[in-house]
């Protein structure tokens, strides 16, 4: 396999909840080191799409491959993909019964088989990069939302993933905490991480994204560079969406 293979590739992915079809044949290629921002109105299937990539949702048709591994029902494939893909949730989902440090070391030690000591060193180093090393021994409940989300980013990075998925990482945050989380994500982007980010933060999209994907009603309506997307969106729906979120 060559370096030009896509890191993540979706082709004609379909998913339905009962009678409602959430994804209607979604195809997307994300190259190594590429940063993709996914936006669109709520209910458009953005979250479902990235949740399919690490099998939090099972896709019913189409192909998903991550770093050359196809995602099938085989638990081995699923495990292999989950080890390589980190994820950050809207609600942080830190483990409340573990300290910040333990949140970071749990998976590296238990899943990667890393030595406790090495895992702690790595965890402290990651907490430095998200700029909260002093919180290492606190419990998640003692931190602000912004701090929790930065811990969640560090926790995902502790598994040394090849790609990172962000599912509306700033939507549950108070406005004054959004910047600290976005700063951490910008820094991560600067290190060349492959990222797919579902977000409404258009400033972040403009600054970081290589590609913007606009989704509506279970389909990718438009794929463009930030410059093109913001200055001359082709589809009417994207124009409407942009005028709604940027219009005031």
């Amino acid at each position: 396999m060559t370096g030009t293979d896509p890191m993540i590739s979706l082709s004609n992915v379909e998913k339905r909840y009962g009678a409602f079809q959430v994804l209607k044949g979604v195809s997307l290629e994300v190259a190594r080191g590429e940063k993709v921002v996914v936006c669109g109105p709520s209910g458009s299937g953005k979250s479902t799409m990235i949740r399919c990539i690490n099998r939090l949702e099972r896709h019913e048709a189409g192909r998903i491959t991550v770093d050359g591994i196809e995602l099938t029902d085989d638990p081995k494939q699923i495990e292999a993909i989950r080890r390589d893909v980190g994820m950050v949730f809207q609600q942080f989902n830190l483990f409340p019964h573990l300290t910040v440090l333990q949140n970071l070391t749990l998976a590296p030690v238990k899943v990667r088989g890393m030595k406790e000591r090495d895992a702690r060193d790595l965890a402290m180093q990651l907490l430095e990069t998200v700029r909260i090393p002093e919180q290492a021994d606190k419990y998640p409940g003692q931190l602000s939302g912004g701090q929790q989300q930065r811990v969640a980013i560090a926790r995902a990075l502790a598994m040394k993933p090849k790609a990172m998925l962000f599912d509306e990482p700033t939507s549950a945050l108070d406005p004054e905490m959004i910047k600290e989380v976005l700063d951490a994500m910008v820094a991560l982007a600067g290190q060349g991480m492959t990222m797919i980010v579902v977000t409404h933060e258009m400033g972040f999209a403009r600054q970081v994204a290589d590609k913007i994907v606009f989704m509506d009603q279970g389909q990718i309506v438009e794929e463009a560079t930030p410059t093109d997307f913001f200055s001359k969106p082709k589809s009417e729906r994207a124009q409407l969406f942009l005028s709604n979120i940027l219009g005031h």
């Binding site: 949730f89 989902n93 830190l94 483990f95 749990l106 998976a107 899943v111 926790r155 995902a156």
Partner: peptide, 21 residues
């Protein structure tokens, strides 16, 4: 909350590890 199960899943914890830890 389901978020706890999902967080454990995406970190690659096995069923046993997720349950126990």
């Amino acid at each position: 909350p389901t978020g706890q199960y999902e967080a454990a899943d995406v970190l690659g914890l096995s069923f046993g590890q997720k349950t126990r830890l």
